[in-house]
């Protein structure tokens, strides 16, 4: 799993433009996290893709977008996975490395869950 982090202008149409680059390159985005950040009128987008080749394929195209201020591939030691699990006992929130979270999901077999990659 490769994680890309983008600093963008927080305005309508930015996600469409960013995702358009992935569509053109036929790359499936595994997870997406978007949120406000420490700077006003800016937002961070954290995307995960299947492998390094796909990430390298798209990164320069993302950098050339006018609304993207920074775009980088995040080193593996800064990856963070989180998940919300719904089981018989109720809702459970899990954070940790991608391997830890996936191991827990496999072990507990929740009825429903959602997992995403994040980084800082």
């Amino acid at each position: 799993m490769e994680v890309l982090m983008l600093l963008v202008y927080d305005q309508p149409g930015v996600m469409q433009r960013v995702m358009g680059e992935f569509t053109r390159k036929r790359i499936n985005v595994e997870t997406i996290v978007v949120g406000k950040c420490e700077m006003p009128e800016r937002a961070r987008i954290v995307l995960s893709v299947e492998n390094a080749e796909k990430a390298m394929n798209v990164i320069e195209h993302l950098r050339s977008l006018q609304e993207v201020i920074e775009a980088d591939i995040v080193p593996a030691d800064r990856h963070e996975a989180y998940a919300i699990l719904l089981g018989k006992e109720g809702v459970c929130r899990v954070t940790g490395t991608a391997e830890e979270v996936e191991a827990l999901i496999k072990k507990t077999q929740p009825q429903r869950y959602i997992e995403a990659m994040n980084a800082i």
Partner: peptide, 14 residues
């Protein structure tokens, strides 16, 4: 037209 022009322009505005 904003969405239509997005993939065929260097940049576009509304």
């Amino acid at each position: 037209s904003f969405s239509l022009m997005m993939p065929i322009t260097k940049h576009n505005f509304r």
